[in-house]
């Protein structure tokens, strides 16, 4: 079932030029896409390609200048159902420090359900359920700024989960984290996806894309390609054009393949690829 659908969506920012004139700066243009329920979609592209604009369009933080954005059957431009729509879209941003509203972990996670007007006993239940989903129950009473980046970002995810959304959008949520923190956040995202959550992962780390069910590639505000990770990584010309690079493991497998080794990057799922390459090399 289709959970997110964008139909010919465009959005532009006001650009203030140095000579004092106000122009337009394209955020996204003519984007049409759809995401199936339960999918794990990666949205990639280099900086300024419109990834984050697209994310903000998904829960009505930005409203499209033209076209429609529908999530769970609700349109973002409908003011009456916007609240309902935001309940369905959990959003986690890049900087963990800038999304904490309280100085105690459990109170921060409780912010969402409090806004929904959930009765008090259920808030407590939701908070602890969300914290256990991200494995942070033991930090419920501590103050967020003492935690590591990965831990803070997991708290932010818990804050989104406490609203019980159907879609989780991670808007470059791993960009500021060290490799360990990134792994923590991605593990949580994959665990939630396995439980049925639709995940939209916005990133510029190509390694993170390997495990996704599909990839959307953006360039200069346009959606230029979509497909499985293997399809995307096989398309060298496309990657060069948009200034992206396939993960090292894929590149290595490709080189080995053309050198006559028995590894095929395209037919193998990314996860086993690493082991596969090693096996071939140690033969």
């Amino acid at each position: 079932m289709e959970i997110i659908s964008l139909d010919n969506v465009s959005y532009s920012y006001k650009a203030y030029n140095d000579d004092g004139t106000v122009g337009e700066c394209i955020g996204v243009e003519g984007v049409t896409l759809s995401v199936e329920e339960g999918a794990f979609v990666a949205l990639v592209g280099h900086n300024g390609c419109g990834k984050s604009t697209l994310a903000k369009l998904l829960n009505g933080l930005l409203l499209p200048k033209s076209g429609t954005v529908r999530v769970c059957g609700l349109t973002t431009t409908d003011r009456d159902t916007l609240f309902e729509l935001r309940k369905n879209v959990g959003m986690v941003f890049q900087n963990p420090d800038n999304q904490m509203v309280a100085s105690i972990v459990e109170e921060d996670v409780a912010f969402g359900p409090e806004n929904l007007g959930v009765p008090q006993p259920e808030i407590v239940q939701r908070v602890y359920e969300a914290l256990s989903q991200v494995g942070m129950e033991q930090f419920a009473k501590s103050s967020p700024h003492r935690l590591s980046g990965g831990q803070k970002q997991r708290i932010a995810i818990a804050g989104a989960l406490a609203i019980r959304p159907k879609v989780l959008v991670l808007d470059e949520s791993t960009a500021m984290l060290d490799p360990l923190g990134r792994k923590e956040v991605l593990d949580v995202a994959h665990k939630l996806n396995a439980q049925g959550m639709t995940v939209v992962l916005i990133t510029h780390f190509m390694e993170e894309v390997l495990d996704c069910s599909s990839v959307l590639v953006m360039n200069n505000g346009h959606l230029v390609a979509q497909g499985t990770p293997n399809e995307i990584f096989a398309n060298r010309r496309l990657l060069d054009e948009v200034g992206l690079r396939a993960p090292r493991t894929v590149e290595l497998a490709d080189k080995l393949h053309s050198a006559g080794f028995n590894v095929d990057a395209l037919e193998r799922s990314a996860h086993i690829l690493g082991g596969d390459v090693c096996q071939e090399l140690t033969k």
Binding site: K56, L61, V89, F93, N98, Q99, F111, G112, A160
Partner: peptide, 12 residues
């Protein structure tokens, strides 16, 4: 950013 985060979490 905080305002965006708060809006995303249904703050009204």
């Amino acid at each position: 950013e905080l305002a965006n985060a708060m809006n995303s979490r249904c703050y009204e």
